[in-house]
Design a protein around this nucleic acid. Structure first.
Lengths: 325, 325
DNA sequence: AAGTTATGTGTAACCGGTTACACATAACAG
DNA sequence: CTGTTATGTGTAACCGGTTACACATAACTT
């Protein structure tokens, strides 16, 4: 491994001078600078981040904590974050918590031990005050509290939008799927939809689901039609479940959207590829990732007067599982 | 920040003793150990990884380089890796290269600068000898070369299996979709399929695709039916494209699998949720991730006589886009 | 011309761990 | 009872960077 000492020797200067050239700070003579640069080049020097991080008590790493990257909503978030922080030279330490408090705590500890500059968390144990003692900038993503800067979409409004759309488009026996109870944004959507459905002159039933996994999605879809075979409008807890419902409905010979309208949530990439393409409430995942990353970077730089709560718009994406005018 | 010195002072011993307790090596008296443990506990001490990593020239981080986590095949790989390395106390530094050499080099440099213990790479510039100079254990995933340990599935056989299956099930005008030229495993599949199709008494055409992205998938599907409207069997370059083809075929009023059979590749989770569910060649992504992680851990521990090339089985998953007997 | 400020460079302390080495004492062997 | 080995603990060097500080010289001021 080539160290700063090797470069110093090669260039005939002290390590301090090499460090100054490296960081472009302090005074360095023009000629000296050239010599050092040449030495770095010929030795193929790459400064050790760990040493820098130790002295500065701050690495160029950002901790990213997700519930489960296997859920298609999150890869997009992650890319939005990665692409943004990379531009400022930061890299990601990734952790999946599976919504388990213990894993979450473990990852947070790892992040701290590695001197991360900041953290972005899209998990659910924020209410526990596990982040409080930390002196590290934190941005919450896809959820919000008073305490920390956060980027989220208006779940309540998304839920309302879904319900309003379905009612407007003529659904009269609506089934509302409720997402896992411990997933905060899922509850917001649910409440939003209940707001609207309660005020409308229609029947509706609620089906509670306890996970977002692919394996279970098919089961929720089956349960849905067993319990409520006559429903003519489904508000799915997310797009995966929505796609599973399309699947099951077609299997049962229902016509979409004539017999049954379906509306998803998230707008994951595969939603436009289903047949019929899934109408859904879009959360702009990539952009949310970007926004969270930018907010974190601003917090790190201690930029004054930054907006610390960024609410992203939700939007109805009309495709073919809802009726047209 | 609580350091080892604080603990030493609190326990009334030297830092060396604290370190010995921490690492459970060297001699430590029973009583002393208790005192130190108590001090650690009461101060809520968490040792700084960066300092350890500097001295040992080795961190507890593993670099993971993927083409694009947004492609649904990769989150599963990533989880397989993460879940496995976590058991040995390692964490992941994640990078997406988008198959760009420059990003790949950047990430490799970052990994080195952070003293990673090992790297897992699923990207394509392995032929360039960018990994050669590194003194860091490397495992290739989803591709293979002579030089490095690797975990991959038999693409050639997968391609053959897809073609053989389609021919057996009665397709007579097969369209073979060729994946991006720079993606090695895609070429293997292609060649395998060509092997079989060339030997069979059937017509076939080739449609070249240049990306795996969701946005483009729909375009490939459209192009497919414009160029080869009478095809009765499609070997898709992967499941995303396969799902897009189902979508387009249904839109055009084709019956699946009566008029058109489709076979995908990968078996991503959403493939079973399409309608009709997509028949496909399965690569066991999660298990491949696990295997790669285990192989890397063994390499790190310098376990002797380990198998360095692990070929995972491919398997035909029969669903409803191919005809049954 | 003397005083002040700007520029250029090196020495050594520091970041928070790990460990080689020195030293002391206890346990054991013959 | 002395020599050897095992056990327990502390001091200080080390990992590879960054930077406070000291010092020297050059460039301005007035």
């Amino acid at each position: 491994m080539i160290t700063i000492k090797d470069v110093a020797r090669e260039a005939g200067v002290s390590v301090a001078t090499v460090s100054r050239v490296l960081n472009e700070n302090g005074y360095v003579g023009e000629e000296t600078k050239k010599k050092v640069l040449k030495a770095m080049n010929s030795l193929n020097y790459s400064p050790n981040e760990v040493a820098r991080s130790l002295y500065k008590r701050e690495s160029k790493l950002i901790g990213l904590l997700l519930p489960d990257i296997t859920n298609p909503f999150f890869p997009q978030l992650a890319r939005g974050i990665e692409d943004t922080v990379n531009q400022s030279g930061y890299r990601l330490l990734l952790g999946n918590s599976d919504e388990e408090l213990e894993k979450e705590l473990d990852y947070i500890q790892t992040f701290v031990q590695n001197n991360v500059v900041g953290m972005i968390s899209a998990t659910n144990h924020v209410d526990q005050n596990i982040y409080d003692a930390l002196q590290i900038p934190l941005v919450l993503l896809d959820r919000t509290t008073d305490q920390y800067p956060s980027v989220y979409s208006d779940g309540r409004e998304g839920g309302r939008l879904a319900a309003r759309t379905l009612v407007d488009k003529g659904a009269r026996r609506v089934t509302l799927m409720k997402g896992p109870a411990h997933v905060k944004p899922a509850q917001d959507r649910f409440k939003g939809a209940v707001d609207v459905l309660s005020d409308a002159d229609i029947d509706f039933s609620v089906l509670a689901t306890t996970s977002y996994s692919f394996e279970d999605a098919k089961g929720w879809a089956e349960e849905l039609f067993q319990k409520y075979p006559n429903t003519d409008g489904v508000i799915a807890s997310n797009d995966i479940v929505g796609i599973a419902i399309i699947h099951e409905a077609l299997r049962l010979g229902k016509r979409i959207p004539e017999d049954l309208q379906i509306i998803g949530y998230d707008d994951i990439p595969q939603s436009s590829l289903s047949y019929p393409p899934l109408s859904t409430i879009r959360q702009p995942a990539y952009e949310m990732g970007q926004a969270a990353a930018e907010l974190l970077l601003q917090t790190i730089k201690k930029e004054p007067g930054i907006e610390t709560k960024i609410e992203m718009p939700v939007e109805f994406i009309e495709r073919d599982t809802t009726r047209k005018e």
